[in-house]
Design a protein around this nucleic acid. Structure first.
Length: 834
RNA sequence: GCGAAAGUGGCGGAAUUGGCAGACGCGCCAGACUUAGGAUCUGGUCCCGCAAGGGGUGGGGGUUCGAGUCCCCCCUUUCGCACCA
């Protein structure tokens, strides 16, 4: 061993050796228990950043632990390689996106290898190669066959910076998820959609399988799907012979309805205008409302506005005629685009009706209050309660009324119970180049025709001019666009939009199990062995993007017979962000800490230990330069301690409690072994699911502190070499999870040949970990007054006697009456006096 | 507004089941070794107090022999959703 810790040298040495020994390669071994550790795959943006390092350090510690516990561990990585940044860079520099992508992949692969993560590189995938994306196309065709992929004209979100359409999930506060300052604009376009809404209920119901997912993520998904049960009710428009259908979750309040509000884009509005006494005037007013309607969600001070159309609609429950208004807060895309206005029991209606002087009529009162509400309410009463002024339904509770009134509507044919979802189908067309071509053809004779499976992949042409202007770049590549109709053989045109790159990442983790298979997207046998993913680790930012698409894809794959389960990920962990100076690292803020630089300065082991030690993994943490110095000091200290003893210890065997010839242990030896086994116990228990790696490393530091304190005893021979070696070995085994290079180096220095990943994780010894003598605090009336030292085996009676005899305690007992003595064995004594 | 999580020294954090609050690390203070120290080692470091002692986990109340931990009310912060009818 070198006298000094040289991380650069050690890390290069062990990375080379791990690769030569194929240490991280795992293959299907029927009968052997497996463990699938998955981390979210990176986009090849140029360099690994600290968020990746955190994510992958967490996964790596777990993977290494599971290897040592005897699992067959699959731990793959790949590249989410299609996407806009490469295309934009390509436009800027007049190059091809694949150049950037593959250059960056090579660079980032090198960086991941520099960090020493335990990936099985044979399984590496990149989504931008035809061998991968052909299976996107294949699945798209399967979905098309099943009616789960369809084309429709619709109003979509367009990001003017990205020059493409976005899915609903990719719009954040009315802005593009990539450009948080860029409001999306609406465009009317013909688009391809995937019918995720067909799985709304399954996505909700199957959440009960996801017991080991963070509550938060499930709540966000539930929210996003937004299922609500309600009633649709037809209001007749007698003067037009038409009807307006409204959706409500509170049909019990309908006797308080004093108007009907419709969205400005509601199809009936045109008819109302046409039949109005002065159509032009009404049209102008409706246009004004339309212009003020909710367009994006960025508007902070949105003001409710509306216009009375002059028409009346009849409430089918009581025959009352109420005015029809066009209101700017009614959304066409939710429910039926029309609502009944019940100002007494809906806050929005209340605000609107107060402004426009529409009547407010109370029909629900709190169940435990006999009389009505106070006069002149200042806000709507929105709770459930008891019905008043509601004709035959008066006196029912809201729950009873909703049920009975819905039933009556169905019986009389003016309405029905119904379910609404907030979730919309997933629009996947993108008007950009660097993505998977959508395998469809348009033929004048045959219409929309899918590309036959055997003609896949539809390869992305390489010689396309990228200008960043206009629409889909593929439309300007005639040799791509012009093709033959697969059905009639006549001339036809290809679809020129590409797929949302979230399609690529919706099933990539299946591909890892057999990345080269060319007869199917997935090797079903391999999937049967390796799935489900035992542990998925990634950022919370994908809670309702990737993590819902991924669940959806698995259900589709199940329905087309590729997999036999409904949920791909048994357990999900969402790590916190890495900040610098309180905010996320970004180039524009100039606060980026480069992992490569840190590795050059301190070594990968130090970077990883600091990353894991600084905060529990689920919390955000702020990078600090002085903090990493501490981690570096720690590893240096470990190195020095072991290096000092390596020469004397490398040829002897470590003491174990199961040795044939048991040693009589000295008190110093007991003390050292106790600490070692306590540390091992803590880490073992933590690795089984709590993953507060920060406390594991803290425990390892305590063990090192104990070793330092006992150094004189080791020198003096009061701790024999075999015992010292035993403690050092446990330390090294534990460190191998977090700082694997130095651990292997020290392990070798202690005389071992085999890399630590192949060493079985040791069982801790309960006896050795147990304290033999305890210091027990003694309280009088709950205040700490003294301490006693007793043997672990001391019984309650002895502890009680010793506690009362303790001098400092006794002072507080003099002249008082002892009411009660509480003895918690091994923990504490509390003497209650009067 | 709705939903979720969190609030502990100068800082990051620990206390897994109600039982010694502040482990471990950073920073700081003092000392040792040193030509030197941004190396290393030793000691100290929640607050008030010379001390005995007292106070202390966002604030207030409660349950309990005992509360950072459980219950109620309030405040603050972060995140997600938000005229979704």
């Amino acid at each position: 061993m070198d006298a000094n810790y040289n991380p650069q040298h050690i890390e290069a040495k062990w990375q080379k050796r791990w690769a030569e020994e194929k240490l991280f390669e795992a293959d299907v071994q029927p009968g052997k228990k497996k463990y699938y550790v998955l981390e979210m795959l990176p986009y090849p943006s140029g360099d690994i950043h600290m968020g990746h390092v955190r994510n992958y350090s967490l996964g790596d510690a777990l993977a290494r632990y599971k290897w040592m516990k005897g699992f067959n561990v699959i731990h793959p990585i790949g590249w989410d390689a299609f996407g806009l940044p490469a295309e934009n860079a390509a436009i800027k520099h007049q190059r091809h996106p694949s150049e950037f992508t593959f250059t960056y992949i090579d660079r980032m692969r090198g960086q991941l290898q520099r960090l020493g993560f335990s990936y099985d590189w044979r399984r590496e995938i990149a989504s931008c190669v035809p061998e991968y994306y052909r299976w996107n196309q294949w699945m798209f065709l399967k979905m098309y066959e099943r009616g789960s992929a369809y084309r429709k004209q619709s109003r979509v979100n367009w990001c003017p910076v990205c020059c493409t359409v976005l899915a609903n999930e990719q719009v954040v506060n009315g802005c593009c998820w990539r450009h948080e300052d860029t409001p999306v604009v609406e465009r009317e376009l013909e688009q391809w959609f995937l019918k995720i809404t067909a799985y709304s209920d399954q996505l909700l119901d199957d959440m009960k399988e996801l017991v080991r997912w963070p509550e938060r993520v499930l709540a966000m998904q539930q929210n996003w799907i937004g299922k609500s049960l309600g009633t649709e009710v037809d209001f007749a428009l007698p003067s037009l012979g038409e009807r307006i259908r409204v959706f409500t979750t509170r049909v019990d309040t309908i006797f308080g309805c004093t108007a009907v509000f419709v969205a400005s884009e509601h199809p009936l509005v045109e008819k109302l205008i046409a039949s109005a006494p002065s159509p032009e005037k009404l049209r102008l007013e409706v246009e004004r409302i339309k212009a003020s309607a909710i367009r994006t969600r960025v508007e902070v001070n949105f003001e409710k506005q509306g216009v009375d159309t002059g028409f009346k609609a009849r409430n089918p429950y009581n025959g009352e005629e109420v005015p029809v208004w066009v209101a700017n807060f009614v959304l066409m895309e939710y429910g039926t685009g029309a609502v009944m206005a019940v100002p007494a029991h809906d806050q929005r209606d209340f605000e609107f009706c107060t402004v426009y002087g529409l009547p407010i009529r109370t029909v629900i009162v709190p169940a435990n209050v006999g009389t009505g509400l106070k006069p002149a309410p200042t806000e709507a009463y929105v709770e459930y309660g008891k019905l008043v002024n509601s004709g035959p339904y008066t006196g029912l509770t809201s729950e009873q009324a909703i049920e009975r009134m819905t039933r009556d509507a169905e019986a009389k044919g003016f309405g029905k119970g119904t379910i609404q979802y907030r979730l919309k189908d997933w629009g996947i067309s993108r008007q950009r180049y660097w993505g998977t071509p959508i395998p469809m053809v348009y033929c004048d004779a045959c219409g929309v025709v899918p590309v036959p499976e055997k003609e896949l992949p539809v390869v992305l042409p390489s010689n396309v001019k990228l200008t960043g202007q206009g629409q889909s770049p593929l439309a300007e590549a005639p040799e791509f666009v012009n093709t033959r109709c697969p059905k009639c053989g006549g001339p036809a045109r290809r679809e020129t939009d590409t797929m949302d790159t979230f399609v690529d990442s919706s099933w990539y983790f299946y591909r890892y199990t057999d990345p080269k298979i060319d007869t199917s997207p997935v090797n079903q046998e391999a999937v049967r062995y390796w799935f489900p993913v035992d542990q998925y680790i990634g950022g919370i930012e994908h809670a309702i993007l990737h993590l819902i698409y991924m669940r959806f894809f698995t259900k589709v794959m199940r329905d087309i017979g590729l997999v036999s389960f409904s949920e791909p990920v048994a357990r999900l962990f969402t790590q916190g962000m890495v900040l610098k100076g309180g905010s996320a690292m970004s180039k524009s803020k100039g606060n980026v800490v480069d992992p490569v630089e840190m590795c050059a300065k301190y070594g990968a082991d130090t970077v990883r230990v600091y990353m894991l030690f600084a905060a529990p993994p689920e919390k955000d943490f702020d990078w600090s330069e002085t903090g990493i110095e501490g981690a570096s000091r720690f590893l240096n200290r470990v190195y020095r301690i072991i290096e000092r003893h390596a020469a004397t210890l490398c040829n002897i065997n470590a003491w174990t409690s199961t040795s044939k010839e048991p040693l009589e242990l000295s008190s110093e030896e007991r003390r050292l072994l106790r600490k070692a086994h306590q540390t091992l116990r803590h880490v073992t228990e933590d690795m089984e699911g709590r993953w507060h790696y920060n406390t594991d490393i803290a425990m390892a530091m305590e063990l090192v502190n104990e070793l330092s304190e006992l150094e004189p005893a080791i020198e003096a021979g009061k701790i024999r070499p075999a015992v010292t070696k035993s403690a050092l070995e446990y330390l090294v085994l534990i460190l191998s999870l977090f700082s694997p290079h130095i651990a292997d180096e020290l392990w070798e220095g202690l005389g071992h040949k085999e890399p630590l990943l192949r060493v079985p994780w040791p069982e801790f010894d309960r006896e050795l970990a147990a304290e033999e003598e305890l210091e027990i605090p003694v309280q009088v009336n709950g205040k700490l007054r003294g301490r006693i030292r007793v043997a672990v085996t001391a019984d309650e009676e002895e502890i009680r006697r010793r506690a009362q005899a303790e001098e400092k305690v006794n002072q507080y007992l003099n002249g008082r009456q002892i009411v009660k003595v509480i003895v918690v064995p091994q923990k504490l004594v509390n003497i209650v006096v009067k």
